[in-house]
């Protein structure tokens, strides 16, 4: 997923990503950003939840002030539910404010999704309970009515099974590529919303040897402090270890 995200970050068809922000609870996007950076790209990364070396000296509002001005080019959002119109739900299922299952809350999504030119949606769990025809509660809308100020919306949705692109004019996803072991049919079976599908679906490229080495080494080094559990689970690395 991190490699697929990295490819989207550097998509030549998209507006350039000079300053990328990564919010709370986003280890996979953080890994993707570090992968882009460690591979030599000139991007500024602002990681909101870094405990040391936090980039903001005017408090946590500074991220939102930057985004309000249009100084953040790319952001990442997940969702407890995501629907076919790219609406995201971080509040809960059932009635307001989450009568069936309560999620943590919307964080900055209701602002960032509309202020940042490009958002990449991500969710590892690819199942009909996550990817629903219509979210129970809208934390942040995928598209807005004409006249409502908005700089951008979803560029793509990356899951544990595939990559979808998003067409805001049609408010509809299209399948772009499937990860190893998946097919167009297996993605269709696991997705609760309808989407477009090309006649032949490409495979998501495998990570290169260089990318894998970076992920396990320099990328993990950067992430150990903020995401110790993630690094332990994915790379079997403890917080004290450093690759020489």
């Amino acid at each position: 997923m991190a490699v697929a995200l990295a490819a989207l970050i550097q998509d030549p068809a998209a507006p350039p990503a000079r300053h990328i922000a990564v919010g709370a609870a986003s280890p996979i996007p953080a890994a993707a950003c570090w992968l882009v950076r460690k591979a030599g790209a000139n991007v500024r990364l602002s990681l909101l939840h870094k405990r040391r070396g936090n980039p903001f000296t005017e408090g946590t509002r500074e991220l939102f002030d930057l985004a309000g001005q249009g100084r953040i080019d790319l952001f990442f959002l997940g969702g407890g539910q995501i629907d076919g119109q790219a609406n995201i739900n971080l509040i809960g299922t059932g009635d307001w404010p989450g009568s069936k299952v309560r999620f943590p809350g919307s964080f900055g999504s209701a602002f960032m999704y509309m202020m940042v030119p490009r958002t990449i949606l991500f969710r590892e769990e690819h199942s009909p309970r996550v990817f629903v025809p219509r979210v129970d509660i809208v934390s942040a809308p995928g598209i807005s009515a004409p006249g409502v100020y908005r700089r951008g919306t979803a560029q793509a949705l990356v899951t544990g099974k595939c990559v979808f692109g998003f067409d805001p004019a049609r408010a509809r996803f299209r399948l772009v590529s499937v990860h190893p072991g998946e097919t167009a049919a297996s993605v269709r079976a696991a997705t609760g919303f309808d989407y477009d599908e090309p006649a032949t679906v490409e495979d998501t490229p495998d990570p290169s040897a260089e990318q894998l080495a970076l992920l396990r080494g320099a990328v993990c080094d950067e992430m150990l402090e903020t995401y110790p559990e993630f690094c332990r689970r994915v790379w079997q690395r403890e917080a004290q270890e450093r690759v020489a």
Partner: peptide, 30 residues
């Protein structure tokens, strides 16, 4: 429920002693 920049903005209005402040985004959110 709120959204992060709204919490900051409401406190910033109190800092300035003004009754309200505007914020972009949010329209279309439940």
């Amino acid at each position: 429920d709120a959204t992060c920049p709204a919490m900051h903005t409401m406190l910033q209005a109190a800092e300035k002693g003004v009754p309200f402040m505007p914020l972009r985004g949010i329209i279309g959110s439940d």
